[in-house]
Each structure stands twice: as structure tokens, then as C-alpha cells.
Design a protein around this nucleic acid. Structure first.
Lengths: 183, 183
DNA sequence: ATGATTCCATACGGTAGCGTATGTTATTGG
DNA sequence: CCAATAACATACGCTACCGTATGGAATCAT
């Protein structure tokens, strides 16, 4: 299954996410991306107006992907307790390295440090996730208003700890799970 | 107290940390830093051999600063329980914006994504801190081997949540404290 | 003071990337 | 098969930065 030599907009965006995950936001350059795609920036500037336009489309794509990603993944579980366990177990897994997976989240967070649009989108995503965790916790009787943020912060921090490629997968969240679900 | 127009190596390094915190690792450029210091890169290349040398010195300085920073801050407390509470309370505070403070930690972590030396130093620092938290937790009878990593991850994640300058200080760790210290 | 040394300014060549302009090939509709 | 258009290649001027080289100013030792 050889790919067509013609590239789509989505090919460029996917390459952007790979570059972002591998080398950070500084790797989002037209000519560098063109080299990895074995083409030239003539293609880039046909599909996109300029770099800001390209980055905005990357951000929009990421934004829609992550909006419901985690929520959908646990929605199949029957009740809040099971959903919560599923969520925390998921957090302890090795992140999938595909685009949109958790592997690029630290890179997006790094990106947000220098781009206010990314920062705003990230704040939205964080708020959505914290609210979701709060709902699950309330379902098992934990109503401390600060707890959802703490749980979500642990989720983010474990991403940080594993993103450095130290090899070993962080195993902290099961410990939190035990702590939370004890009666 | 007007500063001397002559700059020291430390002035350059401090400017680097300000730039890193404000604009990310991509801001560590000789000429850009020179502009903020109202001088020229002639000074930079007198104090430092080149950019890699400069970055290595920044990293070494940060590395020594953070090695004992948090540990010293809580060492004055008499026992493990008090030290633990002090640590978690500290984590919930607004980070000091001075150099070496927690404000630059997300930036250093972003920096680590594209620099393996930074990544290695960060792994060391993480390991030291996790070990310290483990000691404190053991002092209050919590010996779950995964728990220190979870607590530290929450600490990191709260930095992420506040680093975006959303204004409101994260208040999640007190919730974790209550959860941990209940009998 | 003055000579030596430290510190900084300026000019230079080289590289890499941006965005545009324009030419060239590939694909499609009729 | 052949326009028409979509997709890409190439060349260009521009800017920003790197690292060096060298001259000049500030500071210090004696």
C-alpha cells in the first residue's frame, strides 16, 4: 500500500503533530516539514496560507480530537465507579504514540507556553476534563471541590514523568485509585 | 541602586531564565538576550563560548539550585507529618516569580522535550524529589510504593495548570492532603 | 598616569527559514 | 485526447540569527 505522492492537507497536519511530539513547537517550520515529507514548501504554501494558518488548523484539529476522546473511551462502562476505574487505569497505560494520543500532550502543553491561542484551547480542554472527573467522583460520593483538580493534575504530571522517555511507565495512579476508592 | 553597565556571567544567566520562563526555550538566543540587556552579543560571546556552552551553564545552575531547594524549605519542621503538610501547602501557593522558583519549572520541562541533557537533569531532580516525598510519607505510615510518584505527579500537574496564567491558583493539593492524612 | 587587561561594540560572512512569484508536472472533466 | 485546473518544484529577495574578528572603551595594578 504505497501512498500517493500527492499530499493532502491532513498529511501535512499529521506530519506537524509528529514533529511537534518529536522536537517541540520549534519544529513547526514549512521547509523542515517538507523535507520529512520528501516534498517542497511549494506544497505547503498551496495547502496553507502561511505558518500561522497552518498552526491554527493544527490547533483546531487537536482541539476537536481531544474534546471527547477520553470521555468516549470510558462512556461504555455502566456506572460511575467503573468509569472512574477505567479512566485511572487508562492514565497508567503507556500512551498511544499515534496522532491525537496522549503522547503529544506534553508537547502541546509546551507549545501553549509560547502561543496564547494554544493556551486558551488547553484551558478549555482542562476545564472540560476536570468537570468530567468531578462528575465521576460525585458518582462515588466524593464531593470535595478541589479533588477533581488534584486527580487531573496527577494525570498531567504522570504524562510529564513518562514523556521524558525514561522507559518505565508511571504507575502512580493505581495508588491514587486505591486511596480514593477505599470506603 | 543603579546597576553597573558591566554585566556578569550571572546577569546573562538570569536573563536566560527570564526569557525561558516568558517565551520558552526558543528564546535562548544570543542577540535577543542582548537586546533585553541593552547590550550587544559581543558581551555574550566574551562571557560564553557559544550557545551550547551558555545553555549548559544555565542547566548546571538550575540543577544545583533545585537540588535542595524544596527539601531545605521544609527541613525546619520538626517531624515528618509537619514537613509533609508544609510541602503540600507550599505546592498550593502561588509560585515565586524569581529565578529558580517554581515559575520556570514548566519551561524547563518544555526545554527537556528538545534537549537530552536537560531531560537527564530533570529525571535526576524528579527522582530526588520522589524519594524525598516517599520518606515523608513513610514517616506518617504511608508505604504504598506508587504513592510518592502520584503525589509528585499532582505537584507537577498543578504547575502545569497554573503556568498558563489562568490567574486562579490551583487549590488541589490541600484536597489531597486531607485525603492522605485522614487516619 | 599609563600600560595591561577586561569588557563591550561593530562589521562581516555564512546559514536557515519565510513568503511570493512563476514555471512545470500530474490529474481530471468533457 | 485535450484543455483546465490542481498539486508541486524552483528561484528569488528578505530577515534573523550564529560565530568570528577586530577595534575601542572602561577598569585595574603599579
Amino acid at each position: 500500500m504505497v501512498k500517493s505522492p500527492r499530499l493532502t492537507k491532513e498529511d501535512w497536519l499529521a506530519a506537524g503533530f509528529r514533529a511537534l511530539a518529536a522536537d517541540g513547537p520549534g519544529a513547526l517550520r514549512a521547509e523542515a516539514l517538507a523535507r520529512t515529507l520528501k516534498t517542497t514548501k511549494g506544497s505547503f504554501y498551496w495547502h496553507f496560507q502561511d505558518l500561522p494558518d497552518y498552526k491554527a488548523q493544527m490547533l483546531a484539529l487537536w482541539r476537536t480530537k481531544v474534546a471527547t476522546e477520553v470521555i468516549d473511551a470510558v462512556a461504555q462502562e455502566p456506572n460511575a465507579a467503573a468509569q472512574l476505574q477505567r479512566l485511572l487505569a487508562r492514565a497508567a497505560e503507556a500512551p498511544p504514540d499515534a496522532f491525537g494520543g496522549r503522547a503529544i500532550e506534553p508537547a502541546v502543553r509546551a507549545w501553549a507556553l509560547t502561543d496564547s491561542d494554544v493556551s486558551a484551547a488547553l484551558s478549555e480542554v482542562d476545564a472540560i476534563r476536570v468537570a468530567f472527573v468531578a462528575k465521576l467522583l460525585a458518582g462515588v460520593g466524593l464531593t470535595d471541590p478541589d479533588l477533581p483538580q488534584a486527580i487531573y493534575a496527577a494525570y498531567l504530571g504522570l504524562d510529564d514523568l513518562t514523556a521524558k522517555g525514561s522507559g518505565d511507565i508511571a504507575t502512580g495512579l493505581p495508588a491514587l485509585t486505591r486511596l480514593l476508592l477505599r470506603p
